[in-house]
């Protein structure tokens, strides 16, 4: 086992009624890196993420986080205790609230109900919200209702909410879906900015985006890892070209 690895997947498999969606995947993600997972539809990207966040229970293999075995823990302890934050596909935000309130919710999520019944935000919390607003470039829209934002901006709010959870590992499932080219680029810059003290796993289709953010790219096909390496290396891999051209 690699000691520097933040996340370590060892021979992970799951099958749904005989169909092996993820088949013997072993993968190691270092602390601070940005890992991009690409692959055609049905390659098992989202299922793999479901396994990491324990949304789906795995049948074979083990998952380690910071050296601790987190195989099949409950989803909320994965989120709260181990600090793995996840952004689902499509914007999942609270439309009838302001940008600021959405972030504050994510920030205070794990606090007890009674404890913050009447308490308002602390200075620390306000500082954290300001920081996140800068990162997601929505400082000017902090008091706007999220429902009035553009699709891309809503995605950013959600990224901001994942950030607010103060996760060590952030998993973003196709964060640029439905974004304009300009928005996609900005999202890429955000992800670069947030890596370093955090580790990021992104699944994506858009190759321009992958080129922009990727350090290590993992290519999946039919539940297996097809290739792994730097962007240039991967884009020159004939196997990968075949799979993508076929698509």
């Amino acid at each position: 086992m690699d000691d520097k690895a933040l996340l370590e997947l060892v021979n992970v498999s799951v099958d749904f009624r005989g169909f092996r969606a993820v088949d013997g995947v072993s993968m190691s993600v270092k602390a601070g890196e940005i890992r991009t997972i690409i692959g055609p539809n049905g390659a098992g990207k989202s299922t793999l993420i479901d396994l990491i966040t324990a949304k789906t229970k795995l049948r074979y293999g083990r998952i380690f986080f910071q050296g601790r075995d987190i195989t099949n823990r409950s989803p909320d302890s994965i989120a709260r205790i181990y600090g793995i934050g996840r952004k689902f596909q499509g914007p999942n935000v609270f439309g009838d609230m302001t940008v600021e309130e959405n972030l504050a919710l994510a920030l205070s999520g794990s606090r007890g109900v009674l404890r913050n019944l009447l308490r308002s935000e602390s200075e620390d919390a306000r500082g954290a919200i300001d920081g996140i607003l800068d990162t997601i470039e929505l400082a000017g829209a902090r008091r706007e209702m999220v429902s009035s934002l553009s699709h891309g901006e809503k995605q950013w709010v959600e990224i901001g909410m994942v950030l607010a959870q103060d996760a060590k590992l952030i998993i973003l499932d196709e964060p640029t879906t439905g974004m304009t080219a300009d928005e996609t680029y900005k999202t890429g810059e955000m992800i670069r900015a947030m890596s370093g003290d955090r580790t990021v796993i992104v699944t994506e289709h858009d190759m321009d985006f992958v080129r922009q953010v990727a350090q290590t790219v993992t290519v999946m096909n039919q539940g297996k890892i097809l290739a792994e390496g730097g962007f240039e290396e991967i884009s020159a891999n004939p196997e990968v070209i075949r799979v993508y051209l076929k698509e």
Partner: peptide
């Protein structure tokens, strides 16, 4: 509208 509790109630109502 001004406390974390209220925000949570509204969040649960929405999603």
């Amino acid at each position: 509208y001004k406390t974390p509790f209220g925000r949570r109630v509204r969040a649960i109502r929405q999603n």
